[in-house]
Amino acid sequence: MLSVRDVTVAFAGVRALDAVSLEARPGRILGLIGPNGSGKSTLLNVVAGAIAPDSGSVSIEAVPIPAGRPEEVAARGVARTFQIPRLARRLTVIQNMMVGRRDQPGENLLTLLFRPGASRRSERALVVDARAMLARLGLIHLADHAAGGLSGGQQKLLSMGMALMSDPPVLLLDEPAAGVNPVLVEQQIVFLKSLAAEGRTVLLIEHNMEMIADVCDDVVVLDAGTVIARGSPVDIRRNAQVMRSYLGETA
């Protein structure tokens, strides 16, 4: 279980997050919504370990995460994607997918030099898994293309796949549907539901209300750094305050 307690983050005197708390449970998808600038991405960055909160804590299975050290948080089993996908654009799609897996023996220089068999065996298995993931995401035909040549939607799918290669219990997704065509969004929805079915904990930032309604079990609404509502997607849709904060945004 992912637990965020009283997290506060201030930048130059402005409170990006003010005593925010939430819980995300395994097998369930938690949606984080709110107008632009409400602190959603900041919260995601705190959970991922990229930003250290000024106060409060984030815990996984009751053990606090090391603040401000993204590689250690990742090692704890947290994988994330970015709003603008981060990929190695000059490498191929399958190479990117393969980097997603952690603890590769071939990344250790001594193993590489003195136990080449171990490295080769691991690579062979990794290729199989990477191709399977690409097939699952409908990207297998692009395996040897440069990642930078993919469309935005395809890049988002690839990053999700990369995140999954480490078999993470916790997944943080930053606006996976943004700028993606509806067909691929449908694909994403199916994919996300399968993740929950596998027992993972998923935290999802989105503006696409249809996806939120379809996929999320729980929703938390942020506005100006504070939580203004929580509940099921149905509850949230009926919540007047939420409506006002969104109307305020579009005004």
Binding site: A48, A74, A75, A79, A88, M162
Partner: peptide
């Protein structure tokens, strides 16, 4: 990968 994006490398553990 590090050549292109060191934050990505950290994110990947």
């Amino acid at each position: 990968v590090l050549r292109e994006d060191d934050l990505l490398v950290a994110t990947l553990g």
